[in-house]
Amino acid sequence: MELKKTKQPIMGLAALLIVFFHLFPLSRSNDTINSVIRYIVMTGYVGVDIFFFMAGYMAYFSKTDDYFQYIKRKFKNVYPIFIVSCILFIIMGKLSITKGLFTVIGVDFIINGGGSLLWFIPGIMVFYLVIPFYLKLVRKVNNASLFGLSIVVWAITMVLLESVTDNHSINIFLCRLPIILLGLMLAKYEGRWKTNYKLVSALLLLGLGVFFTFKFAYMVKLKFLISEVFYIAVIPYVMGIIMLADVIFTKIKSYLLNSLGKISLELYCFQMIFGSLIFGVVIRYVNSKILAFGIVFTVILILSYLISTGRKRI
Score class of each variant (00 low, 15 high):
3 L>R: 06
6 T>W: 02
14 A>W: 01
19 V>Y: 11
20 F>T: 08
21 F>V: 14
22 H>A: 02
24 F>A: 08
28 R>M: 15
39 Y>R: 09
40 I>G: 01
41 V>L: 01
41 V>P: 01
42 M>F: 12
43 T>A: 00
45 Y>K: 08
55 A>W: 02
62 S>N: 05
69 Q>L: 14
73 R>E: 13
75 F>D: 04
79 Y>C: 09
82 F>C: 05
86 C>D: 03
89 F>D: 14
90 I>F: 01
92 M>V: 00
94 K>H: 04
95 L>N: 10
103 T>C: 13
105 I>W: 13
108 D>Q: 14
112 N>G: 09
113 G>Y: 02
114 G>F: 07
118 L>N: 09
121 I>Q: 08
125 M>P: 07
126 V>Q: 10
129 L>R: 15
135 L>Q: 09
142 N>S: 05
144 A>H: 06
145 S>D: 06
148 G>Y: 07
150 S>A: 07
152 V>W: 03
154 W>V: 00
160 L>D: 00
165 T>V: 09
170 I>Y: 12
174 L>S: 00
177 L>W: 05
179 I>T: 00
179 I>M: 00
184 L>E: 06
187 A>H: 05
188 K>V: 05
195 T>C: 03
197 Y>D: 13
209 G>R: 04
209 G>A: 06
213 T>L: 00
216 F>Y: 15
228 E>S: 12
234 V>A: 00
240 G>E: 06
240 G>A: 07
241 I>V: 11
243 M>W: 15
245 A>N: 02
247 V>H: 05
258 N>P: 03
261 G>Y: 07
274 F>S: 11
275 G>Y: 09
286 V>T: 15
290 I>G: 02
296 V>N: 12
302 I>M: 06
313 R>M: 13
314 I>R: 15
